[in-house]
Design a protein around this nucleic acid. Structure first.
Lengths: 203, 203
DNA sequence: CTTGCAGTTGACTGACCAGTCAATATAGCT
DNA sequence: AGCTATATTGACTGGTCAGTCAACTGCAAG
């Protein structure tokens, strides 16, 4: 028998990758099993359904991503610089995927949420949960920027949501156009949405 | 025999609606035929494949949408007001769909493009084509606003792309959250992205 | 009246779908 | 060694998938 978790972990990572590269609907349980080199019975030993595996894979993705976000949005970093770092690491991530897979794949969570929001309530809720986790980083950065007097104040949550929506829109555009150029200048739009005070010469 | 185009048009409108409400992957040719009350042979008499029907349905959707956009973005309307009108009509459209279907469905083109950008090149290209048509409205409104001295100038195309990406991000967020509240304040973010001159008291 | 043709039908194909299950294997524990 | 949990297998089900096809229909032009 393989070391504990090997089959389960392999299923999670293969599913995560295949769904990211293709779509939920286009990836079958058989596809996932084949690439994970695991038989179907094993799949259903660990996961009650394809949708449950998908939710677990989303959570695993988040856990893998979190250290990067914790670093980008560290309270040790000046607030505006956090957005800068986030834009850079997002671009780097998409660039790497493009290089190894040949296509811009966008954000796995939002792509999946978009495909299934009307079809599978538990997957939709998982996407919302992860979106809200992102939002915490954005919101605290906006709040810290306001405290530092860098931006015209307003409801930080509203501003954070606008910036997040914008970033997801840019990512989606990049995915559909299969072209990263707009992602390279994403920071400009974020700063406009922040309503930077004129005197602020940061960046 | 039915009047000419009846079967073909029914297939287009049913496909458009089903794919909008569900997803490309979740809607089968059989589903479309059943709801259009047309037999499968008829389907394949008019369309060589499911993907071809989908592309034709996207084009038909655009043709139906165009008069609304032409009105929203009429050069007769002051430039900033055009964005205002666009936000209002988009919100109204989503609200109506939510009321009759029970779920926020977002933008059909972008949702489809997001699902299939890595899987079907011709559908991806159709989505890009339609996105570029949207962009023309946005870009000319930005340019007109600059000429009127309402905004800090910059490359109008870049600004238009940012506003478009933002609007799509907000729509996507609304779809995934199944909640229209952020869509109600979309105009604020657009105006921030426009870099309105301080003196501009429009709106 | 007949010939042609776009539109329509329904039965068909073979592949694939998600999910099931009883049998088997292996690990750690006593 | 024997027991029990968990892990694994591979064959199986019934349904659905996209797409095919030969035959049929009714209209219109010659």
């Amino acid at each position: 028998m393989k070391p504990p978790c090997e089959s389960k972990c392999k299923l999670l990572s293969v599913a995560s990758r295949l769904i990211w590269e293709n779509s939920y609907g286009a990836v079958s349980v058989d596809d996932i099993c084949r690439e994970a080199d695991v038989r179907k019975g094993t799949f259903y030993h660990f996961f009650p359904s394809k949708a449950d595996l998908t939710i677990a894979a989303q959570e695993a993705d988040w856990q893998n991503l979190r250290p990067r976000l914790d670093e980008n949005f560290s309270p040790q970093t000046p607030p505006l610089e956090r957005f800068e770092k986030y834009c850079e690491s997002t671009l780097a991530n998409q660039r790497q995927k493009l290089q190894e897979f040949g296509k811009v794949c966008g954000c796995p969570t939002i792509t999946l949420g978009s495909e299934l929001s009307t079809l599978n309530e538990s997957i939709r809720l998982k996407a919302v949960e992860i979106m809200d986790r992102y939002l915490k980083y954005f919101e605290s950065a906006v709040r810290d920027a306001a405290v530092d007097g860098l931006i015209e104040t307003g409801d930080p949550r509203v501003t954070a949501k606008a910036i997040f929506a914008y970033s997801q829109g840019v990512l989606l555009e990049a995915k559909i156009r299969n072209d990263l150029t707009q992602l390279e200048t994403m920071q400009d739009g974020m700063f406009r949405l922040l309503n930077l005070k004129p005197k602020a010469e940061c960046v």
